[in-house]
């Protein structure tokens, strides 16, 4: 999802140059009004005063950000201390998303590599097999995962039946369940970009290395990996970024102890808290984090392109 900024390719043709502004107008209007304007409005809201349960008062206030970073005691009159709770929720989200990314990489890289080294006519069918589950409703996939992982669910039944374990594993409502859920949600995002770069890789380089008596693993690490690094990084970003703001996996697979950013934001609007400016402020912080990651990525991409 991230890095979606399509390059647009080279502007080779100018056949419709005269009409270009009219052609772009609908997308400017629709995305501008219904995505860009709302995000700007949200930024404004994060600096407003909260009304008692839901809604805002149009008065400038920094209290939403203050609540995020500082603890001023029960009555709001103690000296400000740094409040670690919300930072901890962000940290947990980063950690969960990171674990899911690593898990996806461990499974996704060999898969992508394997597919890319199949005979050319078979590759499309492998890619097709990998992408189908992604097109199944995310909610349904998460629910299926929940069903599969239950204490008395099919996975545990299976493991007990083949005698691998004696008592069912307790996975549901743990961090592991959330990580598995995120991993499952975004695994194809890891496979596809890596596949694309391995496919482009020139295996003559590996053969040359092998001729110089490099072992296969050394060749993989020293020759192939640097060459396909852009694909690996793209895959990691594509898994990490949506995992960071995920709502369904933590909500359905984790218990309350696995509160992540998505649930924290949802609670401010749909739940008990009804604190809109705070919800807007958390969203702004999340957005800033994601855009920073994308910006760094885009800059490195450009540098890599300049080099080559």
């Amino acid at each position: 999802m991230a890095g979606g900024a399509a390059s647009g390719g080279s502007a080779a043709s100018d056949t419709y140059a005269k009409a270009r502004h009219w052609l772009l107008l609908p997308s400017w209007v629709v995305v501008g009004i219904f995505v860009l304007a709302p995000v700007l409005m949200m930024m404004v809201y994060s600096f407003l005063t909260k009304e008692f349960r839901g809604g805002v008062i149009w008065e400038f206030s920094l209290s939403a950000y203050d609540q995020f970073f500082f603890d001023r005691g029960l009555f709001g009159d103690e000296p400000a201390k740094i409040d670690w709770t919300y930072i901890a929720i962000f940290w947990r989200s980063i950690w969960q998303a990171g674990a899911a990314t690593i898990l996806s990489l461990l499974i996704g890289f060999p898969t992508a590599y394997f597919i890319a080294t199949r005979p050319e006519k078979n590759r499309a069918i492998w890619v097709f097999l990998i992408t189908i589950p992604y097109w199944v409703n995310l909610l349904i996939r998460t629910v299926s995962m929940k069903f599969l992982l239950r204490d008395q669910g099919p996975l545990n039944d299976f493991l007990v039946n083949i005698g691998l374990i004696d008592t069912p594993l307790h996975i549901i409502n743990t961090n592991l369940a959330v990580q598995l859920g995120l991993f499952y949600s975004y695994l194809p995002f890891m496979v596809l970009p890596i596949y694309a770069s391995v496919e482009r890789y020139n295996f003559a380089l590996s053969e040359a290395a092998a001729d110089l008596y490099a072992t296969k693993w050394v060749t993989l690490r020293r020759i192939l990996l640097p060459a396909v690094k852009p694909g690996v990084i793209a895959g990691c970003i594509l898994v990490f970024v949506p995992s960071l703001g995920a709502f369904l996996a933590p909500d359905l697979l984790g218990g309350a102890k696995n509160f992540m950013i998505g649930s924290l934001i949802e609670e401010q609007f749909k739940g008990n808290a009804g604190n809109w400016p705070f919800g807007a402020a958390i969203s702004m912080i999340l957005l800033t984090m994601v855009l920073t990651i994308l910006l760094i990525y885009a800059r490195q991409q450009r540098q890599a392109e300049d080099l080559s």
Binding site: A5, V35, P38, V39, G245, F247, S283, L287
Partner: peptide
């Protein structure tokens, strides 16, 4: 595509 879904 760049803005997290929950933020949108």
């Amino acid at each position: 595509l760049m803005v997290p879904e929950i933020v949108t």
